[in-house]
């Protein structure tokens, strides 16, 4: 079929400078998305900040939760137990006992502490105590401290409970070389409570993240879809497929998710940097050397990918709901 509008005259001007990509379905959708951001710079930035803010809290929890968990385990009052040995045992026998304990599955580590080491530790604990220790030894005529083995239970889930610790300490105290086992069950219970809390907080933060991301983006997309009803309707009238009509909104969802996640990571990083000093001071007061961690590259990449996916999902849900009303029945 020939229409006869090909002869003479200048071609349309804007054609020459445009890249071929912008004439593809994806290019067209991406151009629409970017154009919408460009046309409403302030509103778009505000929207991104709202999404970023709503995602920043889950990011903080995701970054800090595993570290708080580890912090608890590295504290001086850990779940480790101390087995005091019979004073008649020499260093070789003590070390042998520690080695045999290490072979058990329920024990992560067993370190022998000799009488001399124990005395040195005791003396180094407080500068003022050095003289009193020396005085005590002079009175007693010998080092009264027994050798000991510092035992750290294996960190498997079923060995975290106070009951499991009690059972293990009972087993060790039944050994003939052991006179007494010291275990801080109160701390174990506290630590387990912290672990449970942190684990729950982690799951909650992931749920909050998903819901916040879905809701914030789907609401934005819904408003965008309603704002661009004419464009959707025109595309429908011109025979555009459903995927073509949805694509700009899905891309918008992806951009919102991605940019929102990056903003959230930036906000979380700023918050952590601001909190670092005070938290370090607090940790020192508990004799801990602790520094708040920053979001890792791997975590950031994963987080951005997850939010991008959630953004696309939110967009699809919104557009499925709004577009049929715009397009009318077919």
């Amino acid at each position: 079929m020939r229409y006869g509008f090909g002869g003479g005259g200048k071609p349309a001007k804007p054609s020459s400078g445009r890249h071929a990509f912008w004439f593809t379905h994806s290019g067209y959708a991406l151009r629409n998305t970017l154009q919408r951001f460009g046309n409403q710079k302030f509103a778009s930035l505000m929207t991104l900040f709202v999404i970023g803010l709503s995602l920043s809290l889950p990011v903080l929890v995701l970054v800090l939760a595993p570290d708080i968990n580890n912090l608890g385990r590295s504290a001086p009052q850990t779940s480790a137990m101390i087995a005091y040995l019979d004073p008649s045992l020499n260093d070789i026998q003590g070390a042998k006992l520690a080695a045999s304990l290490m072979e058990r599955d329920t024990i992560a580590s067993a370190d022998y502490v000799s009488k001399e080491e124990a005395l040195n530790l005791l003396a180094s604990g407080d500068p003022g105590s050095h003289d009193s220790v020396r005085h005590t030894i002079e009175v007693l005529g010998a080092n009264p401290l027994p050798g000991s083995v510092v035992i750290t239970p294996a960190a498997t889930a079923d060995l975290q409970s106070a009951a499991a610790h009690r059972l293990l300490s009972g087993t060790i105290s039944a050994l003939p070389q052991v006179t007494q086992v010291e275990v801080n069950l109160e701390w174990v219970e506290r630590l387990n409570a912290i672990t449970r809390f942190v684990r729950l907080a982690g799951w909650l933060s992931i749920t909050v993240l998903a819901v916040a991301c879905l809701m914030a983006i789907s609401n934005t997309i819904r408003l965008e879809a309603l704002r661009h009803t004419k464009e959707t309707r025109v595309a429908h009238l011109l025979g555009a497929s459903r995927s073509f009509r949805r694509r700009p909104f899905v891309y918008l969802g992806a951009v919102l998710g991605m940019a929102g996640a990056l903003i959230a990571c930036c906000l979380a990083t700023i918050a952590i940097l601001l909190l670092r000093g005070p938290v370090q001071g607090l940790a020192k007061s508990y004799a801990l050397d602790y520094d708040l961690p920053l979001p890792s590259v791997e975590m950031t990449v994963l987080f951005v990918m997850a939010c991008t996916f959630l953004g696309m999902l939110a967009a699809l849900i919104s557009v499925r709901q709004v577009n049929p009303r715009i397009e009318g029945s077919t």
């Binding site: 054609s15 020459s16 890249h19 071929a20 067209y28 025109v234 011109l238 025979g239 497929s241 073509f244």
Partner: peptide, 14 residues
């Protein structure tokens, strides 16, 4: 727009 919808090449669209 109708040509983009029909997946036409850039040169043809222009």
């Amino acid at each position: 727009l109708p040509l983009i919808i029909s997946r036409m090449k850039r040169a043809e669209i222009v």
